[in-house]
Design a protein around this nucleic acid. Structure first.
Lengths: 197, 197
DNA sequence: GATTATGTGGAGCACTGCTCCGATTGTCAA
DNA sequence: TTGACAATCGGAGCAGTGCTCCACATAATC
């Protein structure tokens, strides 16, 4: 890649991160190009689709989530690992408002630039869930896809400004539902402690 | 209202219902006007905002839901009433894809045309929830706003094509979470029976 | 039939996603 | 250092969007 192309690529990513953070996943691409001091065609050359741009933005976060799932699998109890990872997932999806709907579409669309990342993430979650199943700590009528869906629903709740005050509470309710042998109030408590740490 | 105006109004509503059903809540208003054989300004005169148009579309559904809540309050057990009404709510919100996000925004925006309908619906749900609380059949850490949020999340799940296969199952899971003394498998079962009735 | 308030339709503005192509610029051989 | 050339760029242009404004048509009234 030519030196100027590399520079523009990096600049675009940095600006896109800022713009998508404040405007959401449906931010104006023209605006991103403008604020990056770059032509619109340049943006489209580096990122042929909106998904491609978001994939580049989310790649590091996705990789971190996968790594974290691996760590948790050995360092924590099955239920703590699952809940803790869920919380991280929701927080990650919430970073860029509206991105979760694209992820839900991408998991079935093998052409989407986000497809692989989503499949990888679902697999990581499924592993943590299987471990909790094996320990008898999670209800068995929920599979990896359900987990992915619930993360999506929670992230969606977080994206609604009017529901922000209750989002944490609802996370506890739903996380508690997934775990069999644990009251959801315990999950909420753990969340509070984590937040104030 | 002048006779021709009334005709255009009705025509717009009929066409809007069809278009929004197939395109979702962010359908093109220009397209609706075109297909109704009407100028764009005519649409905007009758429905100054997109919310106003959707409100008109949803008004009958909303009224039916409120009536249904009243009926259920006397005709069914507290838990059956709540679950049955939740199911109707989710089905209603799913009628027009994407409308649920607008509803979540409208409940805090007193200026929105959808505001009153949303507040009324939340109140109806809160009554059913309070009844279940009184009977000791619903967890007490969930209030009317949470109920509204969970309906929203479920409707959102329904709106994601990739999650449709599991949507019913997840409804059972979450409805079961709200009810204290009932396994979610029972809720699911009741759903199956209703669907096949 | 004439008057008037009400209702209409489309032009116009600023924006969007996306493509195409002439101009520019980094790079590497001579 | 100087070309030459391929890689890269930037913006014009197209078709779409939401929304406003206003000259014109027409239903209702006298």
């Amino acid at each position: 890649m030519r030196a100027d192309a590399r520079k523009n690529y990096d600049q675009l990513l940095a600006v896109a991160s800022a713009v998508v953070t404040e405007e959401g996943a449906d931010a104006s691409l023209r605006d991103i190009a403008r604020r990056a001091g770059v032509g619109l065609a340049t943006l489209y050359r580096h990122f042929p689709t909106r998904e491609a741009l978001l994939e580049a933005l989310l790649r590091t976060s996705f990789d971190e989530l996968t790594t974290r799932a691996d760590e948790l699998e050995t360092s924590s109890s099955p239920e703590d690992a699952l809940v803790s990872w869920l919380r991280d997932c929701v927080a990650c999806a919430h970073e860029y408002r509206g991105v979760v709907a694209l992820m839900m579409a991408a998991i079935e669309d093998t052409e989407s630039a986000l497809h692989n990342s989503c499949v990888t993430m679902r697999a990581a979650g499924t592993r943590l869930l299987a471990r909790a199943h094996a320990a008898g700590m999670a209800r068995t009528d929920i599979d990896g896809t359900d987990l992915f869906a619930l993360v999506g629903a929670l992230a969606w709740l977080n994206d609604q400004p009017s529901l922000t005050p209750r989002a944490d509470h609802l996370f506890g309710v739903i996380a508690g539902t997934i775990l069999t042998n644990r009251a959801s109030s315990d999950v909420r408590e753990e969340g509070r402690l984590r937040a104030h740490r």
